[in-house]
Simulated scan of single mutants.
Amino acid sequence: MTTAPGGPAPRRVTIKDVAARAGVSIGAVSLAANNRPGVSDTTRARILAAAADLGWQPSQAAKALSGTGGRTDTIGLVIARPARQLGLEPFYMEFISGIESILEEQSCSLLLHLVRDTEREIDIQREWWQSRRISGSILVDLQDDDPRIPALERIGLPAVAVGHPHLAGTFPSVWTDDAAAIEEAVRYLAALGHRRICRVGGNPHLGHTAIRTAALEATTRELGLDDARSVPTDYSGEQGARATRTLLASPNPPTAIIYDNDIMAVAGLSVAAEMGLSVPADLSLIAWDDSQLCQLTHPTLSAMSHDVFGFGAEAARRLFAVIDRATPASGPAPRPVLVPRGSSARAASTGRADAPP
């Protein structure tokens, strides 16, 4: 319906208007719109035609409150990161893109919220679920004794946890084998003659950070290397640069550094140049995730590479299986594998600083 300029705004078409046009009850319109049994095919077609004529569609909230026991068209994702930092973080951009690829197949959307702490996330997830704004959520950045797990189990939230099963409680999980990836990186660097291997890590409270730290310490100890040091950060380039300076200014600076993401490795490369060190002649660097950033630097960055897009897609697939009551088992995603490039080479004390054949 249109109005003359300056006239009253057009009235919103309601379910009552559709019922009147089709000559049925409001309940019949709700059944037809939500594809529920209880109306004949002829009546359903008449109702849908009336809705199309009037330009009416049921709201997502109305669908969720229809009592069908089915799912809404939205899933949730809460991430504890500052908005500006998230925009610079290649991992989450790729991970969310993978989720979105599955949502597109399912004709669903993503409700994303950024928070500062897990207590706030619990409040948000509880509100989303109890108001039926979402069908389920993907939980990320799991911690040891994560308070989200029991809190969200209690309210019956359908969810998939991105993290090792020992962190996920009763939720099905999908994870990468970070311990095996760290071991591969350390053994590679040790084979190049590096004995002082350090790491610029992430938040020490996160489960995958603790797994990587333990694997670094265990592997260097097994190989008889110098004690490894991990410096915690918030994953930002600024803290990655600060941690690199701290390590390189220490009495026994490392000859190789492993980073917990790509953006910190790029920052570390700049710090090495700032301090007059040549990469890889004086210092070898290994990034983590292997986004396009790793191939845009000079030298290009060696990296622990994995399919982050596929990781996000797999988390979304498992969540839809949970929502559809298929109870999927937990399972690992393909683990990161080492991709050597120009930033890693033989330790200077072992001979010529060039990449291995």
Rank of each mutant, 00 (worst) to 15 (best):
P8I: 05
I258L: 14
L277G: 06
A161E: 03
S109P: 02
Y92K: 11
V140L: 11
S349V: 14
D260T: 09
V279H: 05
A64E: 10
D354W: 14
A345N: 15
V160E: 01
V78F: 09
F95S: 05
R212G: 03
A329H: 06
P82H: 12
I138R: 04
L112D: 07
S230Y: 01
Q85D: 15
W175D: 02
D260R: 04
P10T: 06
D17W: 09
Q57E: 14
G76E: 03
D117G: 06
G67E: 12
I197M: 06
A265L: 05
Q130A: 13
L319F: 06
R81F: 13
I15S: 11
L103H: 08
R71M: 10
A333M: 09
A256W: 02
G76D: 03
P328T: 14
S59W: 01
V200H: 07
V162N: 01
I263M: 09
Y259G: 06
D146I: 00
Q85K: 15
P336F: 11
L167G: 04
Q295V: 15
S349E: 12
V200Q: 07
S30R: 10
E217K: 10
T297A: 07
R187T: 15
E89M: 08
T72V: 14
I122Y: 05
L167I: 02
R44E: 05
P280E: 10
A214L: 06
E105H: 07
P334A: 11
P82W: 09
L114K: 08
R12T: 02
L31A: 11
V78G: 15
A315D: 00
A272E: 12
A287I: 03
P253V: 08
S305I: 00
E217W: 00
R341G: 08
D146E: 01
A329C: 05
L103W: 07
L319E: 13
D53S: 10
G312P: 09
N34K: 13
R245P: 02
H208W: 13
H166T: 15
Q143N: 12
C108K: 07
A281M: 04
S107F: 02
A51H: 02
D145V: 01
D226S: 13
D144F: 10
T14F: 11
A19S: 11
G193R: 08
A303V: 04
A49M: 08
L296R: 14
G351A: 14
D282E: 14
S230K: 02
P232V: 06
P357Q: 11
A62N: 08
R352H: 12
N35M: 05
T219V: 13
P37D: 09
I149G: 00
S97C: 06
R132Y: 06
L269Q: 03
R318N: 14
S40C: 12
S66V: 10
D289R: 01
I182R: 11
T297Q: 04
I323A: 08
R346P: 01
P147Q: 12
P204W: 13
A315Q: 05
A215D: 12
D307H: 03
Q60N: 03
A333H: 15
A315M: 03
P336N: 08
D144C: 08
P254Y: 08
I75N: 00
T209I: 02
A180M: 04
G156D: 07
D177T: 09
A316P: 03
D117T: 07
D123V: 08
V160W: 02
V24S: 01
T219G: 12
G136I: 05
V115D: 02
A348K: 15
